[in-house]
Nucleic acid binder design. Structure first.
Length: 326
DNA sequence: AAAGATCCCAACCGCACGATT
DNA sequence: TAATCGTGCGGTTGGGATCTT
């Protein structure tokens, strides 16, 4: 438990009398109780006034933050589910660090929590790979490795999803990437031995193409995702996540054609991708090598993209992308 | 077992913006 | 119109918890 050291009394701007009494640092049970009871009686808003009337020696901002991030009854606690993680990755790829906007699609989760998740989990991976978390390369890794893995997790889980139809915040179709590259599920075909590595310039071309398409179709969209969207209920059915790049596309001919363009129409690209991913590993190391080992016997269940670190050498196709940045 | 490193997250800060005075 | 207030947002920090050596 956090100890209220400080310096909890600290001067800020304002009158000397008021400032000397302003508390900072961790909240006590007594303060929480005061705040909760006051809001139960009088509601939220006018936080500065609320703080005074509730008898709290806190700033209005502090009260608001404590309520929204911690005390509010519908605040969900505990680890983020794979569904939630997937949604965060997807929405962040579209909106960037718009935490509050992202949080609106994750009921019970606060912008602070999502921000912390991004910084501690996602950016950590980028740091270990020594690439910019906002780079195209890392975006590619997220889309092609992390998200498919989460989708698999979701597909293989019967746990209730945060993204169910009862959830009003996500009842609308949520635009999502159909991953630009094929995934690598257990059902992958045997690996050809002598294929050339996938030229990542193809992927770049694809991304640029899709960027343009998206921009032209949506005006202000800065997202490189497809114009296609995926219903949340579909997201929760991702046990059907495709085993080929075109399977995911379903009946959407526009996107299908677009992706086919990007893949040179030739389904060999699928094989090529699988080659790259399968040959990236270095036995005995963490990260993708673990994936690789699982791939060998068709079992991916033991690998958690969210928790392990990745080795940049193992992700060499994406490393090529890095040089194309900016 | 102890020390150091790293992780994690609650809380704070500064800024921006719209509403009100 | 300018000043002030209230609110919300994104970035950063502090320090307890956990892991590693």
């Amino acid at each position: 438990m956090r100890v209220n050291t400080m310096s909890s009394l600290k001067k800020t701007t304002g009158s000397k009398e008021d400032d000397a009494e302003l508390r900072r640092g961790p909240w006590t049970l007594e303060e929480d109780t005061l705040l909760v009871h006051y809001i139960a009686r009088h509601g939220e808003g006018r936080w500065n006034l609320l703080a005074k009337r509730a008898g709290l020696r806190r700033t209005g901002k502090s009260c608001r933050l404590r309520w929204l991030n911690y005390l509010k009854p519908d605040v969900k606690r505990g680890n983020l589910t794979p569904q939630e993680q997937l949604l965060i990755l997807d929405l962040h790829s579209k909106w960037g660090n718009r935490w509050s906007k992202i949080a609106q699609h994750l009921p019970g989760r606060t912008d602070n929590e999502i921000k912390n998740y991004w910084r501690t989990r996602v950016q950590k991976q980028a740091r270990h790979l020594r690439i910019d978390a906002n780079s195209t390369a890392f975006q590619g890794i997220i889309r092609c490795l992390w998200m498919p893995r989460l989708l698999q997790k979701i597909g293989g889980s019967s746990a209730p999803s945060a993204m169910t139809a009862q959830n009003p915040a996500v009842s609308q179709p949520i635009p999502i990437y159909a991953p630009p590259l094929p995934t690598f599920p257990p059902a992958l075909p045997p690996l050809p031995q002598q294929e050339a590595p996938l030229d990542m310039s193809v992927i770049m071309h694809c991304m640029e193409h899709r960027q343009q398409t998206s921009d032209s179709e949506h005006g202000t969209s800065s997202c490189i995702s497809s114009a296609e969207s995926m219903n949340v209920s579909q997201m929760s059915q991702l046990s059907e996540y495709p085993t080929s790049p075109f399977q995911a596309i379903g009946s959407n001919s526009d996107y299908s054609n677009l992706v086919k363009d990007c893949y040179y129409v030739d389904s060999n690209c699928y094989d090529m991708e699988s080659i790259n991913l399968a040959t990236m590993s270095v036995p005995g190391e963490l990260g993708i090598s673990a994936v690789d080992r699982h791939m060998g016997d068709g079992d991916w269940s033991g690998y958690d993209f969210g928790d392990n670190e990745w080795n940049m050498d193992e992700l060499w196709p994406f490393r090529n992308l890095q040089g194309k940045e900016t």
